[in-house]
């Protein structure tokens, strides 16, 4: 009887974590589609690293470890980092990749400096930084899942409200500007949505792996369709699938961290899609090539 209660309790924790991971995967998959289509796949990596000083400053200012306050700090820092990247690219001849690299690493370095300051005051333990880097999906509580659900839901709703505008921004920025859409505002809106998704994901998968949560489901979804609507939907599904399967796999054995397992699951989905997706996939491509070759041979042998 006692065993049974432990079992149901474990299952309950696992269920909470799985729901959280699924929600996260769905939100980051859907929003990541835009980043991938705009060739800004690595922006997520930059934002998630740039968030560290924000978390540290939020803690230094308020002295509290309330998730919401830290999330707010992370969001502000990530957002500032993105603005810096955009203005470096706009105002200098430095290219996007270098601007990303500089902001990513130096913001993170500054966060590290602040972190050593905090450590010296003895207010926090090393665990804080580890969680930031690798996440601790296993510690997701009902409260956290609720936060992910609400904030992620808001982000997705905003995405749906501005569907047409964002679609135009992604596929034909020049045309959007020419018919009077406020391009820069839309750009900042889209970035802000990404920031929300990333900051929500930090606790579960951590800064280093967050970029994969944005990129992998979107790349996988891209292989199956040419329509944005379907791609965003599929990416959300793939993200959720990776979240749930990663959580379950990592729970089957001890000492398999959840975040990296989720990322590997998402990578497997990508691999499968690249190989087997109809039309674009490698297998399909090979078959088509052979059919063409055969047809060509038949055509030429006729003469």
């Amino acid at each position: 009887m006692e065993n049974l209660s432990i079992l149901t309790h474990l299952d309950y924790t696992l269920m909470i974590v799985a729901i959280g991971a699924a929600l996260l995967g769905a939100v980051s998959g859907a929003l990541g589609s835009y980043a991938v289509l705009r060739r800004q796949s690595l922006l997520g990596d930059a934002i998630s690293h740039a968030a560290l000083p924000g978390i540290a400053i939020a803690f230094l200012l308020t002295g509290s470890k309330t998730p919401l306050i830290l999330v707010l700090g992370a969001a502000i820092a990530g957002w500032l980092g993105t603005l810096l990247i955009l203005s470096i690219v706009r105002l200098t001849r430095i290219k996007y990749d270098s601007a990303l690299g500089i902001v990513l690493s130096t913001f993170f370095g500054f966060g590290l400096v602040l972190h050593t300051l905090i450590q010296r005051t003895g207010n926090a333990n090393q665990a804080g930084l580890d969680t930031f880097l690798f996440g601790q999906a296993a510690t997701l509580l009902e409260r956290d899942v609720l936060t992910i659900g609400i904030l992620g839901g808001i982000a997705l709703t905003v995405m749906l409200i501005f569907w047409k505008e964002l679609k135009l921004l992604v596929f034909d920025e020049g045309f959007a500007a020419s018919i009077g859409f406020p391009i820069r505002t839309l750009d900042i809106l889209l970035t802000s949505l990404l920031v929300v998704a990333i900051v929500l994901g930090l606790q579960a998968v951590g800064a280093v792996l967050m970029s994969a949560m944005l990129v992998a489901p979107a790349v996988a979804a891209r292989q199956w369709t040419d329509r944005l609507r379907l791609m965003v939907f599929l990416a959300a599904c793939f993200g959720a699938l990776a979240g749930v399967s990663g959580t379950i796999i990592s729970s089957t054995a001890s000492r398999i961290p959840t975040g990296p397992t989720i990322v590997l699951c998402a990578t497997v989905v990508v691999g499968f899609s690249i190989v087997f997706a109809p039309n674009r996939g490698l297998v399909w491509d090979r078959i088509r090539q052979q059919r063409n070759r055969r047809n060509l041979k038949m055509e030429t042998s006729r003469y």
Binding site: I102, S105, T106, F108, G109, F110, L112, V113, H115
Partner: peptide, 8 residues
């Protein structure tokens, strides 16, 4: 961290 900060 400070070297990175000075870089920025």
């Amino acid at each position: 961290g400070s070297i990175a900060t000075m870089t920025l």
